[in-house]
Amino acid sequence: MENQDIRKELIVSAIENGTVIDHIPAGVVFRVMRILNLEAAKTQVTVGFNLESRKYGKKGIIKVSNKFFENKEINKIALVAPTATLIVIKDYKVTEKRQVALPDEIFGLVKCVNPNCITNHQQVPTRFSVINKEDLKLQCYYCEKITAKNNIDII
């Protein structure tokens, strides 16, 4: 089923080489683009919104030509799009397909929820350890307070 799905979409706007990020929850496509800095991309980027997905209802999809992400880079999107699937395409063929996974540490990207944290007052880039991946909880390396899923504010 899944594979048929992919093939269908690849037919619509197939890419020869590159990365497809599928099953992005509706509403966070722009945030994913911002996290991956795709607004500044030089290669061709195709974005789809509100596509029907049997599994997830409405979903988004991003296709980036001639770009292969490092795990460290792509895993950051798990913060906002935990259901996202990463599909690597080489010569029109799917060579890798996997779920994104949260890294153990997150540098920058997220604001510390603690208003009295040093990172919110001086030029200190944020840094967190991911202490719970299922029920997303990030512990600030500096103030040691926990930023939970519902408080996550992407910088």
């Binding site: 510390c112 603690n114 009295n116 944290c117 040093i118 990172t119 007052h121 001086q122 200190v124 600030c140 390396y141 500096y142 103030c143 040691e144 307070k145």
Partner: peptide, 28 residues
């Protein structure tokens, strides 16, 4: 001693000499 939480950890990263935290806000 500093009123902001996490200030001592940050200071320990930039300092050339060791830091003893004598209180960083409500943290440690």
């Amino acid at each position: 001693r500093h009123p902001r939480e996490g200030s001592a950890r940050f200071a320990s990263e930039v300092s050339g000499v060791p830091i003893i935290n004598a209180g960083d806000g409500g943290n440690q």
